[in-house]
Amino acid sequence: MGEVIVVTSGKGGVGKTTTTANLGVGLAALGHKVALIDADIGLRNLDVLLGLENRIVYDLTDVTGGRCRLKQALIKDKHCEGLHLLPASQTKDKTAVNPEEMKKLCQDIAQEFEYVIVDCPAGIEQGFRNAIAGADKAIVVTTPEVAAVRDADRIIGLLEAAELRNPKLIINRFRYKMVQQKDMMSIEDIIDILAVDLLGVVPEDEQVVVSTNKGESVIQDERSRSGQAFRNIVRRIKGEAIPLMNLNQNGMLNKLRRIIGLK
């Protein structure tokens, strides 16, 4: 029986879907059988991030509605062996599925896969309740901004109310330089306020845009810093104790390393 992990945030645009895609690709690259579920019914995006948008025949609501078998709806990733996607419906809305159906769906998928990662929609309404219904664990993504951390706090409260205790935090789009200048909240500031365990910190990285443009994942880019951060997070999910990477990219040594292609 695999583990079902929901990736959530409350606020939109902080990087839930990017995180889901990268963790999926990263876990599959280590040889695990992984299924990604896009639970954002009506606004599917995960297919585009993975470059699988042209291969969708059936979607999540077809499975829960009994119009196809689970195997028919799961799309195999083209680059990554072991990675599968269950896309969201683009034509229906969030009420097309209920939490009981989602719970059953997650259980069924977890029979076949080691990791099931659910990409939760923004907000705290039915789409959120659907996405967390079948989850064993939760990852909360935030950025170092007041609005995003506030929403993360609300989500942590709702997760705990739903018996999903000890959610793990990913701080995304972190800018070391701005933190040094005291113009951005630090990791300690955010952890202090939210009082949750840190799963990882992903630095702001233009390479994410480049990868997304091409339908690839930055985690596969050996030289990208955000990719390194995601690779570390994947290993932490597997239970390894990996220290936080050095987030200072402006040091002379790091510059030199990048020039000669070590990082």
Binding site: V146, R150, S186
Partner: peptide, 15 residues
């Protein structure tokens, strides 16, 4: 106070 301190204080109050 720096803008980070302002952010943190506003956040604390709103929470």
């Amino acid at each position: 106070s720096t803008s980070k301190d302002i952010a943190k204080e506003r956040l604390r109050l709103v929470l």
